[in-house]
Amino acid sequence: MSTRYESRQVSPPQPGPTGIQHSGSGPPRRDKGRGFFNALTAAANGMNGTSNATQGEGFKVWIYTPEEGVCQVSFEAAREYRVLSRDDLPTEDLADVIRVVAYPDTPTEVGAAGMLQQSSAAHVVIRDARKREAIQPIEKRTVIKGGRPLPAALSPRIVTHMLRQLGQSEHAMRVECYGQTRPQEGRQVTQNQDGHVIGRAPFSWAAVFDGAGNAQTVARRAASLLETWLAEALSGRSCATKPSFAG
């Protein structure tokens, strides 16, 4: 995956006509590490009354989907009594991307390590729950608030379809499959009219066949045909692009 950064400017979400700021998808993601650190600091202060710790609440992250970008534009249009049409929407607001705004922790007091106006948010990626994969942003922008760049705030844009791929391998299920066949009493193994087949890639499947009459080989033939056709369909060599069991 190529990563391309552009230096552009964006504004943080503006209050709507009701004065309520549009607040992104879900609750803001707060810096739990910083909160834990603050709690420890408070506990330490309670014990000895002094602290060299830097004050701050940690970074906050808001996520905006394309839908929320359109909502924001419509709020602004309503506030100015304008009729909003599709042509008024910036193309980028309709793009298949989500916008992340990371408001960093910018401490105003110098701590022991000299952390004044230092950002606690240096980069933004989206990771799967198991933290095995990471999606990088396609671009980073500077956040403008009150006509000035917000110190060290980040607004990366992440392509939505990559989110759908994130953690797919995590959700891949493992399947255990075993089979056994046994001829009728008094029959030889080669006279068994049953057959079964187990396929393991790219998805798991299994089938049991029970041949009739003198058809001791028909079950094996059916299993072989089914296996061949499925392999052809999955490799694109057959007219069918996907296996279908609907008849």
Binding site: W205, A222, W229
Partner: peptide, 25 residues
């Protein structure tokens, strides 16, 4: 399944029961 039915037509017949597992379905 219909294709398999046709391919075996005229010869010995067989029953079938099978399952494909995709995700959790």
């Amino acid at each position: 399944m219909k294709r398999l039915d046709s391919a075996l037509l005229g010869g010995a017949q067989t029953t079938v029961v099978g399952a494909t597992l995709v995700g959790e379905q």
